[in-house]
Structure formats: C-alpha cells, structure tokens
C-alpha cells in the first residue's frame, strides 16, 4: 500500500460521485451506431414509392412489433426514420416501404439489390394489437399510411380467431396510388375481412368509390361501440377520421394513431420530435387518441 501512494490516489480519484451512477452496462452499447444490412429485394410500388427487403450482413435478424420504425442510413446521404412494413412473424425479411420525398429517401430510391445500408432499431411504441381482442377492428389508412399499418394487418389476421369483424378502410389519391395493390385485392377476397378502398380522384376505369376515406366509415361493417380502431395517414386525415369514428361511437381509449415528426436519433436524445410532453420517437409514434386529442387540435405544437 505504501509502495505507490500516487497510483493509489489516482485510483481513488476515479471513484467520483457520477461513477457510482454509471455502470459498465451504460457505456457498452452505442445506440447511435447502425448495423449494416444488405438489400435483398427492391421493388417499385408507385411512381414515387418503393419497398426494400433487408437482411443483416451478420448477426440475427431484427425482431419488431407492428407500428415500430427503424432509422435507415444511406451512405453519403443521411439517415431517416422509416416504419417497418413487413410481417412481424417473418423478421428475417425486414421490409420498409418508402416514399421518395427528400434527399435521403431519393438516394434510397436509387439503391439496388446488393447495396448495403445502415439500420438502427427497432424504435417506438407498437400498435396495441391485443387491445382489439374480443372486439371488432377497424383499420383506416390514408395514402402511404397503409405502410405502417401493414404489420398490424398481418398481426390482426394472425389472431383472427380472437376478434370480431375486421374492416380495412383505405383512401388513396388516385387508383394508380393504391399501395400494395395485389395484397389489398387478396385481403378483399377473404371471407373474414371487409375491405373498402376509395380514391380522391377517379382516373381511368376506376369504378369504385370516390371521396374521402371518412365517408367509408359511414358504410359500417363494425359495431362502433365495441371496436378498436387504428388510423394512419396525414395528420389532417387522422384528425377527421378520428372525429368520424368518435361520432359513430368508437371509444377514444380504443382509438390509436401514428404520428410523424422530424427525428435525428430515435432515442430521445436529439429533441427534434417533441410533441407536447412526448417524444414521438419513444413515447410514440403510436398514441392512444384520448392522450393526444387536445394537442392534435392545436397548431404548431
């Protein structure tokens, strides 16, 4: 002990008040560092929308719950939050559907099979599938909002036996903008699910409904007072759909929607996605309507 008092002192000086609160586990993982994934499949869905399937270069696949999102890093372009669009029971196919609207998503659109991108996640709150047990289910999608709802539809169909009626209401801009067209047709062909699709603008030979997705709610097919509702689309669409569902008698505690905000970290460090007291990245993106109804009506919050 007496042989190296200096070393002993230096060692004791590391026993700071803060050190006691920083266990080794806190510094072991770096949540900002992406994992490399390879694009296994690239498919154009719409003129500006595409779907990629990813597999990790090494390590286990990334398991997720419906409604969660990943941060996708495109080398040389940047990182964006993109919701996961695949089947949660098939995590080996990590699927993201993206609309090319900015610098990063446009760079992503130019990628092809074999290219490697970075993935962090999954992040965020999931759609509470179990909230629908014993109830009817209404899923209302607007535009690209169908993408974050697709894992939920998979999950709902996986527990179909526990649910009452299942209704999917989908509003697209034009018939050419209907996402996952084949799959929507397949769902429509099922006997255990009702699917209504409407478009804002009829083009070509479209002979289906024309009008806002809110109008589909009036067509029923579910017992509003005994229904769990899941809504995703542009904020204005979600506000009006939520109101139409509430007007029909859907309980605010069984109504869920998914928000979108600017994100740089997805783990509550960057502050960009704050929405009132919530971080959309970790307290959302899926919120229960009654928790956020006031904020939803306020501008620029």
């Amino acid at each position: 002990m007496d042989t190296a008092p200096g070393a002993d002192l230096a060692a004791r000086l590391t026993q700071t008040a803060a050190a006691a609160r920083v266990p080794a586990s806190m510094t072991a993982l770096d949540p900002m560092r992406p994992r490399p994934f390879r694009i296994e499949r690239w498919q154009r869905d719409l003129s500006d929308t595409f779907t990629i399937d990813l597999a990790p270069l090494e390590g286990s696949p990334l398991t997720f719950r419906p409604g969660q999102f990943n941060m996708l890093y495109i080398h040389g372009a940047g990182e964006v939050p993109i919701s996961i669009s695949g089947d949660p029971e098939r995590p080996e196919r990590l699927i993201h559907t993206t609309r090319a609207v900015g610098q990063v998503t446009n760079a992503m659109k130019a990628l092809r099979v074999g290219d490697v991108i970075g993935v962090r996640g999954p992040f965020g709150t999931p759609w509470p599938v179990e909230a629908a047990d014993g109830h009817d289910v209404v899923i209302v999608a607007g535009g690209i909002g169908l993408a974050p709802l697709r894992p939920l539809i998979h999950a709902v169909l996986a527990r179909r036996g526990r649910l009452g009626n299942v209704v999917l209401l989908y509003g697209a801009r034009t018939p050419e903008d209907i996402l996952y067209r084949k799959q929507v047709s397949a769902w429509r062909g099922r006997f255990d699910m009702t699917v209504h699709v409407t478009v804002d603008r009829a083009t070509g030979r479209w002979s289906g409904p024309v009008g806002m997705v809110t109008k589909l709610i009036a067509r029923g097919g579910f017992d509003a007072r005994d229904t769990a509702a899941y809504v995703c689309g542009p904020e204005i669409m979600m506000r009006h759909v939520a109101q139409a569902l509430l007007d029909r008698g859907v309980a605010a505690e069984r109504l869920f929607l998914s928000m979108e905000r600017n994100m740089k970290c997805a783990i509550g460090f960057c502050g960009h996605c704050q929405w009132g007291p919530d971080f959309v990245c970790k307290d959302g993106p899926v919120f229960r309507y009654d928790r956020v109804a006031t904020r939803l009506a306020q501008s620029e919050v």
């Binding site: 500006d48 609309r99 609207v101 607007g142 535009g143 690209i144 509003g171 697209a172 801009r173 903008d177 804002d200 009008g211 806002m212 809110t214 109008k215 689309g233 542009p234 204005i236 669409m237 009006h240």
Partner: peptide, 18 residues
C-alpha cells in the same frame, strides 16, 4: 354539411407528394 366537409378535405389533396 358532411358533403361540404368531404369536398373541402378532397380539395386539400392530402396524399399529394409534398
């Protein structure tokens, strides 16, 4: 009123590319 609301929302072209 309902038709007017739907028409106004349709007018916004909510799903248009930004």
């Amino acid at each position: 009123g309902e038709r007017l609301r739907a028409a106004r929302l349709q007018m916004l072209d909510l799903y248009a590319p930004p």
